[in-house]
């Protein structure tokens, strides 16, 4: 049986996606779509994503790149006549797709976000060097060298400004109580999973 236009997916979004209960309130005016500075670069603007959710297009929505493009400029939120927290819903959808593990491979924003999080979660501090190298080398060694060369001047500038320490490659700084920090993250994850469980 088709799931088209069944409310199953809408209910799933309401239960599991941050701010997902707002999706049903959209009245399809499209002001969010028109207000997004990244609009021209997406497959589906928010209002269309919301319609797709109502139409039960689970796969298309969760594998879409749309919610990964949001830069949190909040134009859509301030203009939405129904006061939907659109930015948050888009992030919520991205997060949900990530947790489900169904984001298309090499989704660049997801890649960066994952890298960033993993980087941060290790020591409680971002290791800028490892983070940048991680991004540069995601498409292989040769491409990585090219990327690094291209960004050379930025990198050197950051070193000069003491925003980047080459020695970070060998360890790097972190919070004082690392195990306490990890415990905290674990607890937070537990709470999150309870609040918006995946399954």
């Amino acid at each position: 049986m088709s799931d088209k236009y069944r409310n199953n997916f809408l209910r799933e979004v309401e239960e599991k996606v941050e701010e997902g209960h707002w999706v049903k309130m959209c009245m399809q005016c499209g002001v969010c779509a028109g207000s997004c500075p990244f609009g021209p670069h997406w497959a589906h603007p928010p209002q269309e994503i919301f319609m797709m959710i109502r139409a039960g297009k689970r796969e298309e929505v969760l594998t879409s790149d749309s919610m990964w493009m949001c830069t949190s400029c909040y134009n859509c939120i301030v203009r939405c006549p129904r006061k939907l927290p659109i930015t948050h819903i888009m992030h919520g959808l991205a997060n949900y797709a990530h947790r489900l593990g169904i984001v298309p491979k090499n989704q660049p924003t997801e890649h960066f976000a994952t890298l960033f999080w993993n980087n941060l979660a290790q020591t409680g501090r971002v290791n800028e060097l490892k983070l940048s190298l991680g991004i540069y080398f995601r498409d292989g060694f040769a491409q990585g060298v090219k990327n690094a060369m291209a960004m050379q001047s930025v990198g050197l500038g950051m070193v000069k400004a003491k925003r980047l320490n080459p020695m970070e490659l060998f360890g790097g700084h972190g919070v004082k109580d690392k195990s306490g920090f990890h415990a905290m993250l674990k607890k937070a994850r537990e709470i999150e999973d309870r609040r918006k469980p995946i399954a």
Binding site: K4, Y5, Q28, E48, M52, A55
Partner: peptide
């Protein structure tokens, strides 16, 4: 016809 999604759609149940 779903005008927003520009789809020929069916609700069959």
């Amino acid at each position: 016809h779903d005008v927003i999604l520009n789809d020929q759609a069916v609700i069959d149940d």
